[in-house]
Design a protein around this nucleic acid. Structure first.
Length: 451
RNA sequence: GGUCCCAUCGACUAGUGGUCCAGGUCGUAGCCCUCUCAAGGCUAAAACGCGGGUUCGAACCCCGCUGGGACCGCCA
């Protein structure tokens, strides 16, 4: 049987990290089993649901690369995919229960009667056997058995009811959702039983916590996936990071755990049986590491496309250079930079001299050193073959002859060219910038006379 | 308060009774490379929450405790 899973967000906010995590695992399972991934919008909360949020959630999912096979925007054989458009189904089925005496009317609402002692245990795919009965469904204050509202007075179905109707009629085979829904499952099982339907498999996922081990919320900083995009994380990185929360891809042939992988690789490795049960803490350091690894592996051309927007955002004249040069610059940067934004910031000096001027002035150079620097730089600029090897050889020879320290000279060159105390090898940087540009920067700092 | 869930280094995790004086990764510390590094290489510190069982043998099984968490809404 083809597996059918769904992600069912309510459009009351942007796609949250926790929601993305759930969507991701559903997607993984669908792709792993070559089944279908369905997007269903749970917009029965009339107060808080909006069309804008629905779109934001969908674009957040697309950004993460979680394409769905059926959904409100693309249809499918089991639609409609918005709960607000399925009202008649909810009503008809609730009426059936009323006719059978299993539910009753309470004003405009329809309420399911909960009988005591009903066996509601189930085998969760990740948590295992969960033993419980309807006796656990009690009211917080009174402690009485609590009936379940099916249809609210405004005609909308409640979550626990709609989810059962939808999952049944959409022929969902696996309900993969957050662990916070474990306690809702018995209620839903009660309804499956009342209708005489076979329930799907349930696979609950561990929660994602903040550093303080509390459920991830606004207090922990960025929570929507878009905030991560704007911070310069690639979708592949966020995907990879999220996939490692509550799941491990196992070990490779060398016994090392598989931590860095692509979407497709993850889909291949994914197993519901490897999902863990313990709530996982969101660790920004690990995200940064994963991000850096993906950034590193990127093809130079793709990487350039990724970095350009951040350079432009910083007001740098990107269009003044050709792509080959800029791509070379990023290649020179090697594995530096954890996010696209950071890499762009670390490499702005290839695009323009302007930011360098703002970062460094030569004020702290002593007169003695300055005198030596002038000689040194003139020697460099007169090197006939402008290559990193030749420049370095030239520099070493000069420094040795003068009994000077390479460090003083190379670092000053670094500051003058990049305005930073760290960069790739400074002779490589010099080669790439080109003789004219190097001269221009050295002239600015008055290390060499203006031509 | 009731019901349910969870418990391995600071973090993510591997581990399903012996091959574990517990492995990998991030982070941290140190060393190396060196013109610098936030790049690269190497090393180190760092965990089975506690107490009882079961067993020849327990991180793995059982019970209790402690500590976290979720749910108990005409929100989802």
């Amino acid at each position: 049987m083809e597996t059918r899973v769904r992600f069912a967000p309510s459009p009351t906010g942007a796609l949250h990290i926790g929601g993305g995590h759930t969507a991701l695992f559903n997607w993984l399972w669908a792709r792993h089993t070559k089944g279908k991934f369905i997007l269903r919008i749970e917009d029965t909360d009339r107060e808080r649901s909006t069309q804008e949020y629905e779109e934001t959630i969908m674009s957040g999912m697309r950004w993460l690369g979680l394409e769905w096979d059926e959904g409100p925007d693309r249809g499918g054989a089991f639609g409609p995919y918005r709960q607000s458009e399925r009202l008649s189904m909810y009503r008809e089925n609730a009426e059936k229960l009323v006719a059978e005496g299993k539910a009753y009317r309470d004003g405009e609402a329809i309420v399911f009667r909960v009988l005591p002692g009903v066996e509601l245990s189930f085998d969760d795919v990740v948590y295992g056997r969960i033993e419980t009965t309807s006796d656990g469904l009690r009211d917080r204050e009174s402690g009485d058995l609590k009936d379940i509202v099916l249809i609210k007075s405004d005609g909308m179905p409640t979550y626990n009811y709609a989810v059962v109707i939808d999952d049944h009629f959409m022929e969902i085979t696996h309900v993969i959702r957050g662990e916070d829904h474990i306690s809702n499952t018995p209620k839903q099982l009660l309804l499956y039983g009342a209708f005489g339907w076979a329930p799907p498999f349930f696979a609950h996922l561990p929660m994602i916590l903040g550093r303080d081990k509390k459920k991830l919320s606004k207090r922990h900083g960025a929570t929507s996936v878009y905030e991560y995009r704007d911070m310069g994380y690639m979708p592949d990185s966020v995907f990879n990071f999220l996939a490692n929360l509550g799941w491990s891809a196992g070990e490779d042939a060398n016994g090392a755990s598989r931590e860095i992988f692509t979407r497709d690789e993850a889909a291949g490795f994914f197993e519901l049986s490897r999902v863990t049960r313990k709530a996982a803490v969101f660790d920004p350091d690990k995200l940064n590491y994963i991000s850096q690894e993906h950034l590193k592996r990127l093809d130079p051309v793709v990487r350039l496309d990724l970095i350009k927007p951040f350079w432009r955002e910083a007001g740098l004249p990107v269009e003044r250079h050709d792509n080959a040069y800029l791509a070379d610059a990023l290649t020179l940067m090697g594995g530096r930079g954890q996010t696209a934004r950071e890499l762009a910031g670390f490499s702005d000096y290839y695009v323009s001299f302007e930011p360098v001027k703002g970062r460094w002035n030569a004020d702290e150079i002593s007169d003695e050193l300055r005198a030596g620097l002038k000689e040194f730089f003139s020697a460099l600029l007169s090197e006939p073959e402008w290559s990193a090897e030749k420049l370095e050889a030239r520099a070493r020879a000069w420094v040795e002859a003068k009994g000077a320290k390479m460090k003083d000279y190379a670092m000053t060159l670094r500051f003058a060219l990049t305005g930073m105390k760290v960069s790739p090898g400074i002779f490589e940087v010099s080669e790439l910038l080109g003789r004219d540009e190097v001269r221009r920067r050295l002239e600015f700092y008055e290390f060499v006379p203006r031509l």
